[in-house]
């Protein structure tokens, strides 16, 4: 298993059972936020860091026929998909997703995966995250 490092601290963790997003739970407001907040923006009270569910549903999507931010090249396949995923905690995550327009449908179940953005000379993988259709086999699972 290569050494995996999040793009930035505080957004996600790698545990034994895979990648998890980090959010903040405000007990007073009973609201969960992603990404983490310094404190609850509604009550100004303190929040608790929580690991969020790995599965949610697709609220909205699009397919982008342009280079990604910071790049001059269009992805192989003519672009990439983006989506908003609703998690059971009441959190909406805006992110890269996998899929062609014909595969994507509002309301479909989606699953979190690591998204390797860059690899260092020593093999360290810098990871963001993405959601993929839940029906797709997990990486490493037997077909």
């Amino acid at each position: 298993m290569p050494n995996r490092v999040p793009l930035e601290d505080g957004y996600l963790v790698f545990s034994e059972d895979g990648i998890r997003l980090l959010g903040s739970y405000s007990p007073v407001a009973d609201v969960t936020f992603f990404p983490t907040r310094k404190r609850c923006p509604i009550t100004e009270e303190s929040v608790q860091t929580v690991e969020l569910s790995r599965e949610g549903t697709l609220h909205a999507w699009s397919f982008i026929h342009m280079p990604r931010m910071g790049s001059m090249d269009i992805d192989p396949g003519g672009g990439y998909a983006v989506g908003q995923i609703d998690l059971p905690e009441g959190v909406r995550v805006q992110t890269r997703i996998d899929g062609r327009p014909e595969d994507l449908e509002i309301g479909m179940p989606m699953r979190l995966e690591a998204d390797v953005v860059a690899t260092d000379e020593d093999g360290t993988e810098y990871c963001g995250f993405k959601f993929v259709p839940k029906s797709r086999p997990s990486p490493g699972s037997t077909p």
Partner: peptide
């Protein structure tokens, strides 16, 4: 490496 905030272009946001 790019930060998480650069995940999305405005074009993607409004398309959604």
């Amino acid at each position: 490496v790019p930060g998480f905030e650069s995940i999305l272009l405005p074009a993607g946001f409004f398309a959604m």
